[in-house]
């Protein structure tokens, strides 16, 4: 990689990535319930850390390390939606309700029957 361009690209990438991380944490504070917060964390947060890892890969410019950093990016892209999905499912099946402004809930009709431990119906 040509020195100058690599540095400028890496600098721009980390600034954009950091700003995405900031919006994600801002969303975590402002949004009303756990499910909407998950949107902010799983999208903007993932993109933010991925951009910063890509910046690191660009900057180092050494084949083995760049490959490792890119493997980290792929790994992060694969795991972030899985953990968000699992947490959403867990929160829903443990009975955490959605924000009162929510407009529809198709899932409610299917989980009326109590599942294992009989915990689904408990109010919190």
């Amino acid at each position: 990689m040509i020195d100058g361009i690599g540095d400028y690209l890496a600098g721009a990438l980390i600034v954009v990535g950091a700003l995405f991380a900031l919006t994600a944490s801002f969303g975590l504070l402002r949004l009303p319930d756990v499910y909407t917060r998950m949107h902010a964390a799983s999208k903007a947060g993932t993109l933010g850390s991925c951009l910063m890892l890509i910046a690191l890969a660009v900057h180092i410019g050494e084949f083995a390390t760049t490959l490792r950093a890119l493997a980290g990016v792929v790994f992060f892209l694969l795991t972030a939606p899985i953990s968000a999905h699992l947490l959403a499912k867990a929160a829903y099946s443990a009975g955490y309700r959605m924000w009162r402004g929510s407009v529809s809930d198709d899932l409610a009709e299917t989980v009326t029957a109590p599942k294992k431990n009989g915990l689904v119906g408990t109010e919190r």
């Binding site: 950091a18 975590l28 756990v34 917060r37 998950m38 947060g45 993932t46 890892l53 929160a91």
Partner: peptide, 18 residues
């Protein structure tokens, strides 16, 4: 709630990676 805290901890890890 507990899921809120778990989500925030997950996000904390993402920020730490940054």
């Amino acid at each position: 709630s507990l899921p809120d805290r778990i989500l925030a901890l997950d996000m904390l890890v993402a920020v730490a990676i940054g």
